[in-house]
Computed example of a mutant assay.
Amino acid sequence: MNKQEMTATIAEGDGFIAALDQSGGSTPKALRAYGVSDDEWDGEDEMYGKIHEMRCRIITAPSFSGKKVVGAILFEKTMDGMVDGKPVPAALIEKGVVPFIKIDKGLEDEADGVQLMKPMPELDALLTRASGLGVFGTKERSVINKASASGIAAIVAQQFEVGKQVIGHGMMPILEPEYSIKAEDRAEGEKILRDEILKNLDALPDGQQVMLKLSIPVVPNTYKALVDHPKVLKVVALSGGYSRDEACAELAKNEGMIASFSRALLEELRAQMSDEEFDATLGEAIDAIHAASTKKVAA
């Protein structure tokens, strides 16, 4: 797939984006959920080796293909790794899956109800390397904890600033201002977030596009104006702590939004499974998330 074909796959593809980008502090938790205990690895290199084995098993599973999975978000070390003797992005592209990379380096402490992204001084070098490996786009996450208009404005401004840097490298940014599903004022705050994103979209130069990764809204179709905006290639949803069944049920109420699930995709996979059990379990998850992404129901 070339860039034009990847763009069409995301815009028109019948599927969802797999989030395979757990990193840093979330990696031990992800390994434990997969059935790999802390005493099975020693040090960061072995830890990342274990998570790479898990991701390779997912990527090479027969059920994981471009038929239902249109994209995959990778952690930097996964992007730089190999699977079956090929660079991971190339292996994904062969399966019809568009590769993205997580670029943020974690979150600042909360201020004004939000957690901005930490600085990324080496971002240009990372984008150059990723582009050279055939990676189509990026994902960058920050978090909203309450309906602070000024905090949300700051978080959206930072997301678009980073997004423009990504666009400058000829890549597609997925902007992810995640709204915590634990926030009591989420319904109010999601309207503020939508309107702030719309302002920034309207200010983007003609011909430029971004993607958005958002929490599934409390009120279905709150983000429909973003789905329909000509400067948005696709709006994808994070599972945000919901179980797969909960996330799929809520996502199915939102027209035009597709999944970009991590935990909800992987929650039933275990290292101890046979290859047949692993693929069958992964296939069931893919089928459920694909249905919620493509077969919508009345809210």
Score class of each variant (00 low, 15 high):
residue 1 M to T: 12
residue 4 Q to A: 15
residue 7 T to D: 05
residue 9 T to S: 08
residue 11 A to V: 00
residue 12 E to Q: 14
residue 13 G to H: 00
residue 15 G to I: 02
residue 23 S to E: 12
residue 24 G to N: 09
residue 25 G to D: 05
residue 25 G to W: 00
residue 28 P to Q: 01
residue 29 K to M: 09
residue 30 A to H: 03
residue 31 L to G: 02
residue 31 L to Q: 03
residue 32 R to W: 04
residue 34 Y to W: 11
residue 36 V to E: 04
residue 38 D to Y: 07
residue 38 D to N: 12
residue 38 D to V: 07
residue 40 E to F: 08
residue 41 W to S: 12
residue 42 D to P: 05
residue 43 G to W: 11
residue 43 G to Y: 13
residue 43 G to R: 14
residue 45 D to A: 15
residue 48 Y to H: 11
residue 51 I to F: 04
residue 52 H to S: 15
residue 53 E to G: 10
residue 55 R to K: 15
residue 55 R to E: 08
residue 56 C to I: 03
residue 57 R to M: 10
residue 59 I to C: 04
residue 59 I to E: 00
residue 60 T to I: 11
residue 61 A to G: 05
residue 67 K to Y: 00
residue 72 A to M: 04
residue 74 L to Q: 12
residue 77 K to C: 06
residue 78 T to C: 04
residue 82 M to W: 08
residue 84 D to G: 03
residue 86 K to I: 08
residue 88 V to F: 01
residue 95 K to R: 15
residue 96 G to L: 07
residue 96 G to H: 08
residue 99 P to T: 11
residue 104 D to K: 02
residue 109 D to N: 09
residue 110 E to Y: 01
residue 112 D to R: 01
residue 114 V to W: 01
residue 117 M to N: 02
residue 118 K to R: 12
residue 120 M to D: 05
residue 122 E to K: 14
residue 123 L to M: 15
residue 123 L to R: 11
residue 128 T to Q: 12
residue 128 T to C: 05
residue 140 E to T: 08
residue 142 S to Q: 02
residue 144 I to K: 00
residue 148 S to V: 09
residue 150 S to M: 10
residue 150 S to A: 14
residue 151 G to L: 06
residue 153 A to V: 02
residue 154 A to Y: 02
residue 157 A to Y: 02
residue 158 Q to M: 09
residue 162 V to G: 01
residue 163 G to R: 01
residue 164 K to Q: 15
residue 165 Q to Y: 01
residue 168 G to Y: 06
residue 170 G to L: 09
residue 172 M to E: 08
residue 173 P to L: 08
residue 174 I to N: 05
residue 176 E to M: 01
residue 178 E to C: 07
residue 179 Y to C: 03
residue 180 S to N: 07
residue 183 A to Q: 03
residue 184 E to T: 11
residue 184 E to L: 12
residue 185 D to Q: 10
residue 186 R to I: 10
residue 190 E to C: 04
residue 195 D to M: 13
residue 200 N to Y: 10
residue 201 L to P: 02
residue 202 D to F: 06
residue 202 D to R: 09
residue 203 A to K: 10
residue 203 A to I: 06
residue 203 A to P: 07
residue 206 D to M: 10
residue 210 V to L: 11
residue 211 M to K: 03
residue 215 S to I: 01
residue 216 I to L: 01
residue 216 I to T: 02
residue 218 V to G: 01
residue 219 V to E: 14
residue 219 V to A: 12
residue 220 P to L: 07
residue 221 N to W: 06
residue 221 N to V: 08
residue 221 N to D: 15
residue 226 L to M: 09
residue 226 L to W: 04
residue 228 D to I: 04
residue 229 H to C: 09
residue 229 H to D: 05
residue 229 H to M: 09
residue 234 K to H: 08
residue 235 V to D: 00
residue 236 V to E: 00
residue 237 A to N: 00
residue 238 L to Y: 00
residue 240 G to N: 01
residue 240 G to P: 00
residue 242 Y to L: 14
residue 244 R to Y: 09
residue 249 A to G: 12
residue 254 N to V: 09
residue 256 G to C: 13
residue 257 M to N: 06
residue 260 S to H: 02
residue 268 E to I: 03
residue 268 E to S: 14
residue 268 E to Y: 13
residue 271 A to K: 15
residue 277 E to K: 13
residue 279 D to M: 10
residue 281 T to Y: 02
residue 281 T to S: 06
residue 282 L to T: 04
residue 283 G to F: 06
residue 289 I to H: 01
residue 296 K to E: 07
residue 297 V to G: 08
residue 298 A to P: 06
residue 299 A to P: 13
